[in-house]
Each structure stands twice: as C-alpha cells, then as structure tokens.
Simulated assay, not measured.
Amino acid sequence: MRRLLLVLLQLLLTLVVLGAASWGVGLLVFRLPGAIGSAAAIGFGLAGLAGAIGLWTGAPRLPFAFAVLFVSLLGWWGSLKPSHERNWIPELARLPQMSVADGRLTVTNLRHFIWRTESDYDQRWETRSYDLSRIQGADLFLSYWSGEAIAHLLVSFTFADRQPLTMSIEVRREQGEEWSALAGFFRSYEMAYVAADERDLIGLRTQARGEDTRLFRLNASPSQARDLLLAYAKDINELAQKPRWYNTLTTNCTTVVYHLVGQVAPGWKFSLPLDPRVLLSGYLAGYLKDIRAIRQDLPLDELVKLGRIGEKARGLAPDSPDFSRVIRVGVPTARN
C-alpha cells in the first residue's frame, strides 16, 4: 500500500512538473521575441523534462532545480503589467467612459466608424447621451467567424428614442500585432471595451467581414436592461482607469459579460449556473434558452434560423440609418 501511494504521488508530481513546463514554454514562446523565445522555451522544456525524470530516478536536484527556474519565471510573469500607453490600432485607440447624471447616461469616445472593408473606413468618435428612462430592453448578438464552437458576443441596449447602444469586449491589439488564441493565455494582449452604434460593431462583422451573425432578443425588462447597462458602465470606467489583461479563457467577450450579469442577477428572472457553453460561446444560444433568457415557445433551431441577420445587413449601405430596424425584421421579439 505504501508503495502504491508513493507511485501515485510520483505520478501526481510528474503531471505538475510537466504542466508547469508546458505553461512556461508557452509563456516564453509568446512573450519573448523570435529565436530568443524559441531557445528559452526549448531550454525550459528540457529542464522540466529533466525534473520529471529526476522524480523517478532518485535525483532530487533535478526537480529542485526546475522548481527554482519555475519560481523565477513566475516572478517575471508577475512583473508583466498591462498598459493603456501603446501604439494601438485605430479602431481600439480610444476607450469609452460613461457618466450618469439626472437619469441620463453620457458616453464619451463612442465609436461610430463607417466600414466599407476592414481596411477602408471612416473614423468617427462621438459623445452621446441616453435617457435611461427610455431604455426598452437588451439584445444579444453572436458572430461566427470559424465554425460553430466559438462566436464573438455583443450586447445591444435598445431605447425608445435613440439608436441602440452596443457593447463589445475586444482584444486591444497594437499596430502590426496579430491575434492568437494561444497567445491570449500569456498576457500578450490588453482588454478593451468598445461602445458604439450597431452600424459600427455589427456592420463591421456582417458587412466588412462577412461573418455569420445571429441576433437574439433577450427576455429582459427595461429595469433589468438598465441594471445591466449600469454594470457595464461601472466596469468600463474601471477599465479606463486601470488596464487589465485579456485572457482567452477567463477574461474574454463571454466570461466578462457573464460576470456583469452575475452582479445584477438578483433582479433577473434567470440564474447563472456554471455551464461549458459559457466558454464555448458558439453554443451560448442553447444555454440562454435553458435559463429562459430568450423565447421559450419556439424551437432553438427556429430561433437561430430567424436570428441570422447577415444577408439583411449586407443588403444595406454601410451608413444606412435604417440598419438597426432592418436587421430586426423577422427576428422574434422578446417575451418577458
């Protein structure tokens, strides 16, 4: 029995060492440039392998040496700090901020780009004010660019007297920087909010990129939508004051919204159980139906079919003032 427990402990420690080595290799590859990063990653990986072998060969100096290297790497990891001061791509150059006074929400640095293609667009940044007593509800967009498992999530707040206000959580890239989901695990990108109208955020995806974008009307009352919008405003202002890292798994376009909804959950009709569909955001519509956040009287397949807005959006001019109205034609309305 003692021998078995020792073997199990060795197996557990081996998995820990190999897991730490894999994480360290990824960090060095994505955070150090070119050949330097590759060489450092190979060296660290070999040290991890030696540490794992040492657990089984009675050479404790090998896992100990690796542990010292790993602690040193953790120290470097902890020293990596996010910043707002970088050479950002134009569409993410400014962060929104929001203020509330006399029942009105004022948004500064609201993006209102007119997109013809991803590289051909007119830059516009505005300040807009919204009467919170005129909020009607909230809609959710899922935009697919590669298969069904992963989609970008956007939330849009509708008003009786204004065009919808749309929120997106983005990877804040620098000029010349490419997006990599793997790099997103290793403090490679800062997080950004974008507050915009739908012609910008949704038009970019449907018209300029040709993505499969689907609209779902949420079963949120005006007061619930207002609570969520104010939760957004609070977090948007906090981010504007203190930068934070984007993380592919824990701080992304879906998990941050999940957290924000959780803050106002006592006022909502649905609860927020943990579910893998929150991470595999392409399947989020099924999760929303299960928690009664979208229409219950229609099958999910029908909601998805009717919610596809890409063709309607692509039939409009990039600067069409009817964009938000037209994309909602035929999409099932919410039922509270």
Results as ranks from 00 to 15, higher is better:
151 A>M: 09
155 V>G: 00
131 D>E: 12
110 L>N: 02
120 D>N: 13
122 D>F: 08
98 M>C: 13
135 I>W: 06
119 S>C: 11
138 A>Q: 01
103 G>C: 08
129 S>V: 08
150 I>G: 01
114 I>Y: 02
149 A>G: 09
159 F>N: 03
106 T>V: 15
136 Q>E: 14
126 E>W: 02
136 Q>G: 09
106 T>Y: 12
115 W>S: 07
121 Y>R: 08
144 Y>A: 06
99 S>Y: 08
153 L>E: 14
138 A>N: 02
126 E>D: 12
148 E>M: 14
160 A>Q: 07
103 G>T: 03
155 V>R: 00
122 D>H: 11
105 L>N: 06
129 S>D: 11
122 D>V: 13
108 T>I: 15
143 S>T: 15
114 I>T: 15
151 A>E: 11
127 T>E: 11
161 D>P: 04
139 D>L: 08
160 A>N: 01
135 I>E: 11
160 A>M: 05
125 W>D: 03
106 T>P: 04
137 G>A: 05
131 D>K: 03
125 W>V: 00
132 L>S: 07
153 L>R: 09
136 Q>P: 05
118 E>M: 09
151 A>D: 14
151 A>Y: 07
122 D>P: 08
151 A>C: 08
154 L>Y: 02
98 M>F: 07
131 D>F: 00
129 S>T: 14
147 G>Y: 03
147 G>A: 07
98 M>G: 02
160 A>V: 11
108 T>N: 14
127 T>L: 04
139 D>M: 03
150 I>F: 15
141 F>N: 05
137 G>M: 12
126 E>Q: 12
135 I>M: 12
112 H>I: 12
139 D>R: 05
118 E>T: 15
107 V>C: 01
141 F>A: 10
105 L>K: 01
122 D>N: 10
107 V>M: 04
